Every structure is written in C-alpha cells, then in structure tokens.
Simulated assay, not measured.
Amino acid sequence: MYDDITDVPGIRVGHDTNLEAGTGCSVIICDTAAVGGVDVRGGAPATRETDLLNPLCMVDEVNAVLLTGGSAFGLDAASGIVRYLDERGIGYDAGAARVPIVPGAAIFDLPLGSATIRPDSAAGYRACEQAKTGPIEQGNVGGGTGATVGKMLGPDFAMKGGLGSASMELAGGIVVGAIVLVNALGDIIDPQTQQVVAGTRNIAGKSTGPSNLFGNTTIAVVATNATLSKAQVNKVAQMAHDGMAHVIRPAHTMFDGDTVFALALGDRTSATQQDTATAALHVSTLGAAAATTLARAIVKAVRQASDLHNVPAASSLL
C-alpha cells in the first residue's frame, strides 16, 4: 500500500500545478462509478453538484470529483473533466447521452501568487491526462499549490498548507483512503503530541490585530471499496469531518468552506442484506476510519509542503 487514496481500487488521481501563479487543481477519477455523498460544514463554501449527492435525489453515481484552487473561478476546471470523460463515453446513462457526474469544491488561494490566474477547463483536462494509480505527489501540488494555514491574524502570519493523502486497511480487505487540500483559517495540530505542526506565526514587531480573514477552506474526498447506499455514504462523509476537528483548530468557521465528499466503489450487484444493527456498525466503522485517515492526510499535507511566494512551510522551520 502507498498510504494514499489510490490504495482504494478504482481510484486514480491527477494534478495540474502552476507554481508561479500559486494555484492548481486535482481530479479524483473513479474507474468504477461510485456511490457519492457530501457534507458541507464550513460557512463559506464554493461547490458544484453537491445537491445531486443528497439521498433524496435520483442519480446515484459519481464519475470524478474536482478539488481545486481559484475560489469559485476554479470550479470552471470541472468543465474540462466533463469533456475528458465525455470523450471516453463515461457518465450517467441519461438515454440521449452519457452525462459525466463531477461534483467539486474550491479553496480560496487567490492571495498567494496571482489572483487573476485560476484553474480553468484546460487545467481540469490536463489533470485528467495525468491521472494515475500508485503513489501520488503531495504538498505544493495540484489544488493544494496555493494553500496556506494559520490565518487568524491575517495572511502575513500564515504558513504553507498543501495537498495530503493517506489510507487505512480494515478487516476483510476493506480500504479507506483520503485526499485533502489544507487551506485552513486555523492551525494544524499533531494529534499524537498536541503540538502545532503549522499555524499562525508569532512575528516580532508586527500588529497582532485581525486582518483580512477571507482566504481559507479545507476540502477533501474520502473513498472506500466497501459497498454502501447513498444514505450510508453521506453518513461516512459526515463522520469524516471529525478528522478535521481533531487536527484543525478552529475548524468549520464562517471563513472556511470545509467540505468532505465520500465515494463508495464496492460492487453493488453483490450487496448482501444486513440487519439494521449490523449495517449501522459497518457504516460507523467506516466513518470512524475515514475521520482518522483524513486527520493523517491533513498533517501529511503541511509536512510535505515547501516554501512558496515567501510563505514558509513547516519543513523549512525544523
């Protein structure tokens, strides 16, 4: 296992990175159509196709997920992903056409690098062309390129965030993986030591008054090879948010658009009927594993990041 989300069979990840502009996008492609869910906890989300993932809605498959920089502008990258999948005949069979189902979310990374260069349709398409199984690059890459953390006193006191991924194997060959863009208002805490890994810097001689707090959001995808219903996978997305709360302080603020997508790639044709208690235990176990795995991915993101555009990373301060 690679300790990242591509340990889940059927998942490929691709990035498009623009270091000069300080932005990029990442795509999580499902080679097997997944049952998808989502849970939005932050007060300032930038999202696409999240209503479709509600169990009350009809479509029950997801073909890819976009995690992007560029704020709402960056959601345009999903158009390139849709085009890439459409060219390959991948999508929900709507009769007249197969419609690619591509939910997505964006982080606000405009203050780092260029505010006028954002991921677009071409960037989303390029990310798809780079999608692969196997170990994925982490840190200043893809949608995490322009991510920063620790902005309670404003961007001048921030440290570098980034993209991270992790996985966990459970009994019976079940795998849970997570990928995350860490661009939090809060600090990142090591859950083992309770020490700050990356966060608000104490810079002598600078004002300590709050300054422009807009520029945050942590977004993630958790995935599993287990078989889940649409309602169950939404519960896993909900529980996965506990991973953010474990290592980001504070999390889910009005200045963050914290969002977690969940994907279940198990074989729905071989699903077995379970009694209520057994099914509830199964979902709860997966949700707890997703939270633990997401927390590790968040810490990995800031540890793998490097300095960019004069924002220091945790690795450079060791």
Score class of each variant (00 low, 15 high):
217 T>G: 00
38 V>G: 04
24 G>E: 06
103 P>K: 04
135 P>G: 00
285 T>M: 11
98 R>D: 06
181 L>K: 00
195 Q>H: 09
74 G>P: 04
154 G>M: 03
71 S>L: 07
27 V>L: 05
52 L>F: 13
78 A>F: 09
231 A>N: 09
146 G>A: 08
103 P>V: 02
227 T>S: 04
252 H>M: 11
184 A>F: 10
179 I>L: 15
294 L>I: 02
255 F>Y: 13
108 F>D: 04
294 L>A: 02
98 R>Q: 10
42 G>E: 11
91 G>R: 04
148 T>K: 06
223 A>R: 05
191 P>W: 05
15 H>R: 10
33 A>V: 03
169 E>Y: 15
40 V>I: 14
193 T>I: 11
283 V>T: 13
78 A>G: 11
60 D>K: 13
85 L>D: 08
18 N>W: 03
195 Q>D: 13
55 P>Q: 12
72 A>I: 08
180 V>K: 03
181 L>V: 08
175 V>F: 04
102 V>W: 03
3 D>C: 09
3 D>E: 15
305 A>G: 11
181 L>T: 01
102 V>Y: 02
266 G>V: 06
164 G>T: 02
81 I>D: 04
189 I>M: 07
115 A>Q: 04
81 I>R: 00
126 R>L: 08
211 S>N: 07
29 I>P: 01
135 P>F: 05
176 V>A: 04
264 A>H: 01
55 P>N: 13
8 V>R: 11
61 E>G: 03
112 L>R: 14
305 A>K: 05
118 R>W: 13
109 D>K: 02
153 L>V: 00
138 Q>N: 01
103 P>E: 03
312 P>E: 03
201 R>T: 03
117 I>M: 14
54 N>W: 14
147 A>Q: 04
181 L>D: 07
174 I>R: 14
264 A>T: 04
72 A>Y: 11
100 P>H: 05
11 I>D: 00
151 K>A: 01
268 R>K: 15
144 G>D: 07
140 N>F: 06
147 A>P: 10
107 I>M: 08
223 A>F: 09
191 P>N: 08
2 Y>D: 05
145 T>W: 02
240 A>P: 01
289 A>K: 08
161 G>N: 11
233 V>L: 01
224 T>C: 10
96 A>K: 15
151 K>F: 05
181 L>I: 14
253 T>Y: 00
172 G>V: 10
226 A>L: 02
251 A>I: 06
288 A>T: 15
284 S>D: 13
199 G>S: 00
145 T>P: 00
201 R>L: 11
202 N>V: 08
292 T>A: 15
223 A>D: 02
209 G>K: 14
242 D>E: 12
238 Q>K: 08
105 A>W: 01
94 A>E: 11
315 S>W: 06
2 Y>K: 12
285 T>Y: 06
290 A>L: 10
158 A>C: 15
129 E>F: 08
71 S>Q: 13
84 Y>T: 03
222 V>A: 02
164 G>Q: 05
231 A>T: 10
37 G>N: 08
277 A>D: 15
3 D>N: 15
200 T>H: 03
